[in-house]
């Protein structure tokens, strides 16, 4: 009895420490280091592919694919979706940006696992309910899709990629994104703080 208790006590301390370590997420990387890493990935895309990064285009391709599954007639009747459906021999998912965004998902998961940051939850300020936050997340996503469609790209495909290439329209877009977000920040502060 005494021996077992002693052994358990000896083992208990490091085990408890291990659990504490498992729960604690690592701090984020210095923003300038993360930025250099991101810039080198973007540079690799330019050098290897002759194109930059993107995100909204993948969601567009996915929407075209899903709509075509449910309502093919409707999908073909809307130019914005039909662009992806013109070749019946290949799937709209057989697309560079779709594969890239699947990679984004995987890369984010790898980084978060290494830093112990994978956790089911909802990001919101203390004054807003989860239901309202989820509704606003959906609405914000819908607005972002419309904005990206009008602008021919999002923060990745326009601001980041075109920014590095000194693309005139990308810089106009980037300044407008910051203007739009700063302009509205005050009115939605209850969601975040």
């Amino acid at each position: 009895m005494t021996v077992r208790t002693d052994t358990a006590d000896v083992l208990a301390a490091p085990v408890a420490d291990d659990h504490a370590a498992v729960r604690e997420a690592a701090p984020y990387t210095n923003p300038y280091l993360a930025g250099i890493g991101l810039g080198l990935v973007l540079l690799a895309a330019f050098v290897i592919m002759g194109r930059g990064l993107g995100a909204s285009g993948a969601f567009k391709a996915f929407t075209a694919w899903a709509t075509n599954l449910v309502a093919p007639g409707y999908a073909h009747s809307r130019t914005f979706l039909a662009d992806y459906l013109s070749d019946p021999t290949t799937s709209p998912l057989n697309d560079w940006l779709v594969f890239e965004v699947v990679g984004v998902f995987a890369g984010g998961l790898i980084s978060a696992l290494l830093a112990r940051r994978v956790r089911l939850g909802v990001e919101k300020g203390p004054r807003v309910t989860t239901g309202v936050r989820l509704l606003l997340a959906f609405g914000g996503g819908a607005l972002s899709a419309v904005g990206a469609a009008i602008a021919r790209g999002c923060t990745s495909g326009q601001a980041l990629t075109g920014g590095a290439l000194l693309n005139l329209g990308s810089w106009i877009f980037m300044l407008s994104v910051f203007a739009g977000a700063y302009g509205l920040a005050y009115f939605v502060r209850g969601e975040w703080r």
């Binding site: 984004v104 914000g140 607005l143 990206a148 009008i150 999002c154 326009q158 407008s176 994104v177």
Partner: peptide
């Protein structure tokens, strides 16, 4: 369109909390 699209995406960013990639 890129001015208007940027403003709309910026609004979506601060309301939704993300952009498409993030």
């Amino acid at each position: 369109p890129q001015i208007v699209g940027g403003l709309v995406l910026g609004a979506g960013f601060v309301i939704g909390g993300y952009c498409p990639g993030t």
